[in-house]
């Protein structure tokens, strides 16, 4: 295609939007509604994932040593654990730190009650590694691995929390894939329908082009540009809307349910948009392209 023809096709694509205002508005509205729903759902899912991930990071396995374990053995155990699959971080807690933590948790403000243990650490043999998981579904494997290491006496872990988080995560994954697939199918169907309506209105114009000797590409190009433009506009509108709504919604939740402040941490809008923006635009462009390109194809055989 010549550059001048390319320019002409682009210009016609823009003009087509103006010529068929109602059709264009209907297409943009359909696309906006679909991408808005997609964005809304994506924001919810990604935040839920983030919350679950945070919760996972808090889940730790505690690895205690044999009484006669040497410092070298302990260092080696730490290194082996850090290398294990699914482990995020390994933190050494000395016997003194373990006792300090225990005092803080158990005696609280009445620290004087612990005076009797002043020179005798009752947790003297309780130095340990806190192993934090990047992926709780691998916890059982890590526990098995830790048990096989020389110098390990005991392991404390929470199977229930790990299992719950794993299954919640899996459920969220399945649901999000299913909903995104449904939304995609619905939007392609709706866009294809609206494009068909637009093409039906212009069937005569397409027929005239073909009689005059227009190549398929020449007939198709303005429609595809039109579809792409509608796709971009249909994506930008809901993305801008969601951007402002997201911040307002988080502010609202945090002020209305201040109790959640300590438990839940929402993702900042920039983090959500790092993925949502390109995906949303790509979705708009993709649906616009697929909708117009394939719908016009069947009208070209004149």
């Amino acid at each position: 295609m010549k550059i001048s023809t390319f320019g002409y096709s682009m210009k016609q694509g823009v003009k087509n939007i103006g010529r068929n205002k109602m059709f264009s508005i209907a297409s943009v509205a359909t696309m906006s509604a679909c991408i808005f729903l997609f964005g809304l759902f994506y924001a919810i899912v990604i935040n839920f994932n983030y919350i679950v991930e945070k919760a996972e990071e808090g889940v730790a396995i505690t690895v205690f040593f044999e009484e006669d374990a040497t410092d070298t053995q302990k260092t080696q155990i730490g290194e082996e654990l850090a290398k294990a699959d699914g482990v995020l971080d390994v933190n050494y807690v000395s016997a003194e730190e373990a006792w300090d933590n225990f005092q803080g948790n158990y005696f609280g403000e009445s620290a004087d009650l612990a005076e009797g243990f002043k020179n005798d650490n009752p947790l003297g043999n309780s130095d340990n590694y806190e192993v934090y998981m990047a992926d709780v579904s691998k916890q059982a494997d890590v526990v098995e691995f830790a048990e096989s290491l020389n110098g390990v006496r005991k392991i404390r872990k929470s199977d229930v929390v790990a299992k719950t988080l794993t299954s919640v995560n899996r459920l969220v994954g399945y649901v999000s894939v299913a909903i995104v697939a449904i939304l995609l199918a619905v939007s392609i169907f709706l866009i294809s329908n609206t494009v068909t309506m637009g093409i039906t209105v212009r069937r005569e114009e397409i027929a005239i082009m073909k009689y005059i000797g227009a190549k398929d590409g020449f007939v198709r190009a303005p429609f595809v540009f039109e579809g792409l433009l509608i796709g971009i506009i249909g994506a930008v509108i809901p993305l801008v809307l969601l951007y402002f709504m997201y911040e307002k919604a988080i502010q609202y939740v945090m002020t209305k349910f201040s109790l959640l402040n300590n438990i839940i941490d929402f993702l900042p809008v920039a983090s959500v948009y790092r993925t949502l923006l390109p995906v949303g635009i790509a979705l708009g462009v993709g649906i616009g392209f697929v909708g117009s390109f394939f719908t016009i194809r069947k009208h070209l055989r004149v």
């Binding site: 073909k210 000797g213 190549k215």
Partner: peptide, 9 residues
């Protein structure tokens, strides 16, 4: 099919 446009011209 692809030759038809040139023919119609």
């Amino acid at each position: 099919h692809r030759k038809i446009p040139m023919y119609r011209r």
